[in-house]
Structure formats: structure tokens, C-alpha cells
């Protein structure tokens, strides 16, 4: 497969006459990058505080009036949750107004046979069955697949289940309950909602581990930049072969 830079990517960046010499493409616009790092930070706070809500630290002593530890931990969780949720909404908005790479998290080219073929190719690449990786401007198809099913759907589930749980405490007349209380129709005993929200935390821990590993590995092994791309927005290619 030859890598054909999308003319839309080049237009903002290089003269079309230099298209065949392109070594760098502007992929992730500033709002996407900013969101990525804010979201990463929010996720770290959410996972750590969430874990300590599920399995609290060792008991404090003395009188209840002297401490508010669980209160602070829960506050941090809820505050980070709002940043996570509002960030996701802004990110969805950016999928509409940003460049076409911004839409990749939310769309799947399910009817594109080449996309499926490339998923298999990427799997083989990760299983050391391919000698040389392909070039991709956005996410590679396998990453795209995982991003959508684990990250995007996972985020939606965590937001919906999280706000439903928040609504339990905020009361049945709260905004959170009226917007996400329907989750209890799926999980009538909210103990299950707590359980799956908790499992969701582990899914995100696993996702983060694999995501960071894959990004660093690809940065070294693939033919394009990875880590710096999420900082500068530029996808740099190490060679000019297709």
C-alpha cells in the first residue's frame, strides 16, 4: 500500500508541488493534543481515587469531625470526572469542526475491505510476522479499532455509569439522575453498576498500559513518529519510501 497524504493535510502545510517530498504531516490539532493530555491526567486521578473509593485507605482514628479523607478523595474523583466528561463532549464537538483525523475516534470504516486487511497486517506486525510496518498518517487500523471499542465506548460507559452512581447520592431529583438514571434500567441492582464501573477502571488501566507501550514501541520501530506527534501534532516519516 502506498501512502498517499491526504490533500487536506498538505494544504495547510506544504506546497502541493512538494507532495512527494512530504516528510511531515500536521495530524493532531492543538485542541486534540490539549484534550489528550488533560484527559490522560484526569484518567490517572480517576483511576487512583476510584480505586481508593472502592478499597479505602486504612481507617483514620479519632473523631469523625476531625477528618474528611473519603470526602476529599471523592471530591477529587468527581471533579476529575467532570473534566473527563466535559473534555469528552468538547472532543466530540471537535470531531465535527476539526480536521478529518479528529473524527477517527468516532467512526469506523467497517465496509472498507482494505481496512480489515490492514488490521490483519497490523496484527501480524505485532506478532513479528511482518518485517516492515506500513506508514499511516492517523491511527493504524488496529489501533483505530481498539481506540473505538475500548477507549471511545469505554469512556461513554464510564461517564454514563459514573454519573448514574453520582446521581444515586445526589438524589432522584438531580440533573445527574435525570440524565443518567436510565442506567439502573440496565443494572436494576446498582451493586452491579458499581462492579462494572470498577471493572471499567481496570479496562482503562490495561488500555493505558498497552497504549503507552505501543506508542513508544512504534516510535522506535515504525517508520513514523508517535510520541512527539501528540506533543507537536506533526507526524514525521523516517523515510520517503511508500
Amino acid at each position: 500500500m502506498t501512502i498517499q497524504p491526504d490533500p487536506r493535510d498538505l494544504a495547510v502545510h506544504e506546497e502541493p508541488s512538494h507532495a512527494h517530498h512530504v516528510t511531515s504531516v500536521y495530524v493532531y490539532e492543538a485542541p486534540v493534543r490539549l484534550w489528550h493530555w488533560i484527559n490522560a491526567l484526569a484518567l490517572v486521578v480517576l483511576a487512583v481515587t476510584g480505586y481508593f473509593i472502592g478499597s479505602p485507605l486504612h481507617s483514620t482514628g479519632g473523631e469523625a469531625i476531625e477528618h474528611f479523607l473519603m470526602g476529599y478523595i471523592r471530591f477529587a474523583h468527581f471533579a476529575a470526572a467532570y473534566i473527563f466528561a466535559i473534555g469528552f463532549l468538547v472532543r466530540i464537538y471537535w470531531a465535527f469542526v476539526g480536521n478529518h483525523h479528529a473524527r477517527q475516534l468516532f467512526t469506523l470504516p467497517l465496509w472498507n475491505a482494505n481496512w480489515w486487511k490492514d488490521i490483519v497486517f497490523e496484527l501480524k506486525w505485532y506478532l513479528f510476522l511482518e518485517k516492515e510496518p506500513k506508514k499511516y498518517i492517523g491511527h493504524n487500523p488496529l489501533a483505530h479499532f481498539v481506540m473505538f471499542f475500548v477507549f471511545t465506548l469505554g469512556t461513554a460507559f464510564m461517564i454514563a455509569s459514573g454519573f448514574a452512581l453520582y446521581g444515586e447520592g445526589a438524589g432522584h431529583d438531580s440533573l445527574q439522575w435525570s440524565t443518567f438514571g436510565w442506567m439502573t434500567a440496565i443494572f436494576p441492582n446498582t451493586q452491579d453498576l458499581h462492579t462494572w464501573h470498577h471493572v471499567g477502571m481496570w479496562v482503562f488501566v490495561l488500555f493505558a498500559m498497552i497504549h503507552i507501550y505501543a506508542a513508544i514501541r512504534e516510535d522506535i520501530m515504525s517508520r513514523q513518529s508517535m510520541v512527539s506527534t501528540m506533543i507537536s501534532g506533526e507526524r514525521m516519516f523516517k523515510d520517503n519510501r511508500p
Partner: peptide, 22 residues
């Protein structure tokens, strides 16, 4: 049935303080 036991539990201040029976 609109509120949880937890919401009106008289031990709730201990929960918020992080004081638990181990």
C-alpha cells in the same frame, strides 16, 4: 425507596471521614 440506606445512615460521617471498621 427513593434514597439509599447510605444516604441517611447515622454512620455516614465516619464514611466521609475515612473511618472504617476493619
Amino acid at each position: 425507596y427513593s434514597q439509599r440506606i447510605h444516604d441517611k445512615c447515622y454512620r455516614r460521617p465516619h464514611f466521609d471521614a475515612g473511618q472504617f471498621v476493619e
